[in-house]
Design a binder for these strands. Structure first.
Length: 499
RNA sequence: GGUCGGUUGGCCGAGUGGUUAGGCAGAGGUCUGCAAAACCUCGUACAGCGGUUCGACUCCGCUACCGACCUCCA
């Protein structure tokens, strides 16, 4: 198994990945809160971790991938004013059952993941399905003296926790002194909390609150951060390998998650924390609450003032892959157009490659070595903290070689038949298995018929050309072009591609 | 205000103490009946100012600008 390096947010460094159990990986990624439609920024995160998941599997790890659905506990607005559960609020406004809201947006989320070719996780647990476990964890934390109850709500005691373990703020770089220093000014707004940085792990439900469960402290609902602690522990164990999420979840969500796990289990839950960076729009974080976002359907259809036209889901996925997951990615129409061209070039190269057959005679020379080096480089790139843009660069260099082989600038005689087979498999695996791309152009079910018809048409055009009947051959080409089919004349006959 | 991160050629976007990222766009050429596609060649970019060094885009410091988090957010 190749040595994999992962950038660990906890240490801020790249580290060699060593799983808890040899050959197995426990991967937890924070899923969406399903109170409205996913926007494109959300999607980027899930695409990033989809590649992580895919590559871990490709390396031969047996991965258990858990990605939750948060369907309760996520509060609206700041903690000082009247807080309300996001889903509960939406349900109240739309006069629907909270679970109808959850179902609607969860369905939409799944559909979008499918469209973007994001693999489903192995387990997709929901917060509302784990109320009992959450109550258990609250009790465990209380039992360890790291939480306190006030008027039916239970708060995590961050000050005590910081004193006992000294790790509160370790992930997000916050200091205990700062937290304590803040206390004087802000205490007035937090009458139930001992300290402003304390956070609710169980919340007593107001009378109008729709989502409520019985607990030893009150009829209420669990705090936002609790479900991730509970469900990751339940399905991946008290200590597991990788926890991922958007960088905006670092604080407070992940910091509090760590605190809860210490509070209940007495030790750190996760060995490697991974944080994906934000998708930007107009140079700013894409965010629905800021009104700065594009919804995936708008992007696909092009019905947004920022876009000159629509872009297919796979172009969008490719666009995301062209940037490292830890860098911000700025969405612009121009960048999408460039991505679309690049995506086509890559897929075309893949098609050309898979059509190659080797005559059988060939010698291992410079070309053979170059191809093997580029393949090795692509894997090395992925093993270096999932560097998809760099791996793509290696693949594009291979595309040039592939096209040169096709055009005759390079000769099959300079590579071994085995190398060609290896290249075919590697290229295919990278594009479809690791990067999770799909061939957008060839997704029609009647492809076989189309291929047959196209072969016939191109054959007729070839005959016309042989007779120097240019009007006929050009007419065929022009009509096809009007149907978005491009004819490309090559050394050995013509090929075609859509659009 | 605090913490962290970024500033790369026309655009997007990797990376490295001295050697080609890659994609898109652009220029020239090859091929072609023409075109498209493809191939070849080309731009010598790393915010500014200092410092370390034989040598820095890459390390250190300062300045400027941008962003993220600190409040719900992938």
């Amino acid at each position: 198994m190749k040595e994999l390096q992962i950038h660990n947010s906890l240490t801020g460094k790249k580290e060699v990945f060593k799983p808890v159990n040899e050959g197995h990986v426990g991967l937890y990624v924070c899923g969406p809160t399903v109170y409205s439609d996913v926007h494109l920024g959300n999607c980027r995160s899930f695409v990033s971790f989809d590649v992580v998941y895919r590559y871990l599997m490709y390396l031969g790890y047996k991965v258990r991938y858990v990605r939750n659905i948060t369907d309760v506990g996520h509060l609206e607005g700041d903690a000082d004013s009247g807080e309300e559960d996001k889903i509960s609020k939406r349900a109240r406004l739309e006069q629907l059952e909270p679970m109808e809201i959850v179902q609607r947006y969860m369905n939409g989320f799944h559909e979008m993941m499918h469209i973007l070719n994001v693999l489903p996780p192995n387990i997709e647990p929901r917060a509302t399905g784990h109320i009992l476990e959450q109550i258990d964890m609250v009790q465990a934390i209380l039992g360890n003296g790291l939480a306190y109850e006030k008027n039916g709500s239970v708060y995590f005691d961050t000050v005590k926790f910081a004193e006992k373990y000294g790790v509160y703020g370790a992930l997000s770089g916050r200091k205990i002194e700062d937290l304590i220093a803040e206390s004087r000014d802000n205490l007035k707004n937090q009458e139930e909390k001992n300290h402003p940085s304390d956070f609710a792990i169980w919340i007593k439900a107001a009378p109008e609150h729709l989502m409520r469960w019985k607990s030893p402290w009150s009829v209420g609902f669990p705090g936002w951060h609790l479900e991730c602690s509970v469900m990751s522990t339940k399905y991946l164990g008290e200590t597991f390998d990788i926890h991922g999420g958007g960088s905006d979840l670092k604080f407070p969500h992940h910091e509090n998650e760590i605190a809860q796990n210490y509070g209940a289990c007495g030790h750190s839950p996760v060995n490697y924390w991974m944080h994906g960076n934000m998708l930007l729009l107009n140079g700013r974080k894409m965010s629905k609450s800021e009104g700065n976002s594009i919804m995936p359907p708008e992007l696909f259809l092009g019905n947004n003032p920022l876009l000159s036209r629509g872009y297919s889901p796979m172009v969008v996925r490719f666009f995301m892959l062209q940037t490292h997951y830890r860098s911000t990615l700025d969405l612009t129409d121009e960048a999408l157009q460039a991505a679309e061209k690049g995506y086509r070039r890559l897929m075309e190269g893949q098609k050309v490659l898979q059509g190659f057959t080797h005559s059988g005679e060939g010698q291992a020379g410079q070309l053979d070595k170059e191809i093997n080096d580029l393949m090795g480089q692509a894997f090395a790139d992925m093993c270096d903290d999932f560097n998809t843009p760099k791996a793509l660069a290696s693949l594009f260099e291979l595309v040039t070689i592939i096209n040169s082989l096709k055009g005759g600038q390079l000769s099959f005689n300079d590579l071994l038949p085995g190398t060609l087979e290896h290249l075919k498999k590697t290229f295919h695996d990278f594009i479809f298995e690791i990067f999770g791309l799909r061939d957008d152009a060839g997704d029609s079910s009647g492809r076989g018929v189309v291929d047959g018809l196209m072969n016939l048409i191109l054959d007729m055009r070839q005959k016309a050309r042989a007779n120097k009947d240019w009007p006929t051959s050009d007419k065929i080409r022009d009509v096809l072009k009007s149907l978005d089919i491009i004819v490309k004349d090559g050394k050995d006959g013509a090929t075609w591609s859509k659009e």
